[in-house]
Simulated scan of single mutants.
Amino acid sequence: MTKYNIDVTLTQTKKEKPNASELAFGKVFTDHMFIMDYTEGQGWHDPRIIPYQPLTLDPASMIFHYGQSVFEGLKAYVTKKEQVLLFRPDENFKRLNKSNDRLCIPHLDEELALEALKTLIQVDRDWIPNAEGTSLYIRPFIISTEPYLGVSPSDRYQFIIILSPVASYYKEGIAPVRIAVENEFVRSVAGGTGSAKTGGNYAASLKAQQLSGTKGYSQVLWLDGVERKYIEEVGSMNIFFKVDGEVITPSINGSILEGITRKSVIELLKHWGIPVSERKISIAEIKEAYAAGKLEEAFGTGTAAVISPVGELFWQNEGMSINGGKTGEVTKKLYDTLTGIQSGMVEDHFNWCIEVK
Rank of each mutant, 00 (worst) to 15 (best):
T303E: 02
L268I: 03
S343C: 14
V177H: 01
L269Q: 03
N5K: 10
R139K: 03
G273S: 05
W222Y: 11
T39C: 13
P106V: 03
P250Y: 13
N201L: 01
V243D: 01
K171F: 09
Y148W: 12
E111Q: 15
K229H: 13
P59E: 07
C104A: 15
S212W: 05
G259H: 07
I63A: 08
K81H: 11
I239W: 03
M33Y: 10
R262C: 04
I307A: 03
E16Q: 13
F87L: 00
P153G: 07
Y38P: 01
N97R: 01
T214W: 12
G293W: 10
R48A: 12
A304Q: 01
A190W: 11
Y148L: 14
P54M: 09
L85Y: 04
H32I: 00
I252P: 09
V166A: 01
D109R: 12
I266H: 12
T198W: 04
G324D: 06
V330Y: 12
K197L: 07
L108I: 01
V189Y: 13
A24F: 12
I239G: 04
N92Y: 04
F350T: 09
D31P: 14
P59S: 06
D46K: 15
E312W: 13
N130R: 15
V346H: 08
L269S: 05
L103K: 10
M320F: 15
K98N: 14
G302L: 03
G41Y: 09
K270A: 11
I161R: 02
V70A: 08
N323W: 09
G225A: 05
C353M: 13
A167C: 10
G67V: 04
A298G: 07
Y169F: 10
D126T: 12
P140R: 03
K3L: 13
K15L: 00
P176G: 09
F71N: 04
A180V: 12
T339G: 08
T214E: 15
T56H: 12
W127P: 00
T193N: 14
E111T: 14
E146I: 01
C353D: 05
P54G: 06
C353I: 12
G43T: 05
L108S: 06
K94W: 10
D7Q: 15
S282N: 13
P18N: 07
A298S: 07
D37G: 10
M62R: 15
E296C: 13
L211Q: 11
N201D: 00
L269R: 12
D90M: 15
G191K: 07
P54K: 11
E232I: 00
M237A: 07
G302K: 06
L295E: 07
Q12K: 15
M320N: 09
R156I: 02
G199I: 02
G191Q: 02
S69Y: 08
K326F: 14
E285A: 02
A204Q: 12
D124V: 00
K81G: 09
T9I: 10
E172D: 11
G245P: 04
Q68F: 12
A24H: 13
R156G: 02
A60N: 06
L114T: 08
I143E: 02
G192W: 07
W315K: 08
H45V: 05
I161H: 01
T214C: 10
N351V: 11
W315R: 13
M320G: 08
K80C: 04
F159N: 00
N130Q: 15
V330L: 11
I256P: 15
Y52A: 03
V356F: 13
D244M: 13
A131Q: 14
P275Q: 00
W272L: 08
L206M: 14
Y157M: 05
G319C: 02
Y77A: 03
Y202F: 08
N97G: 02
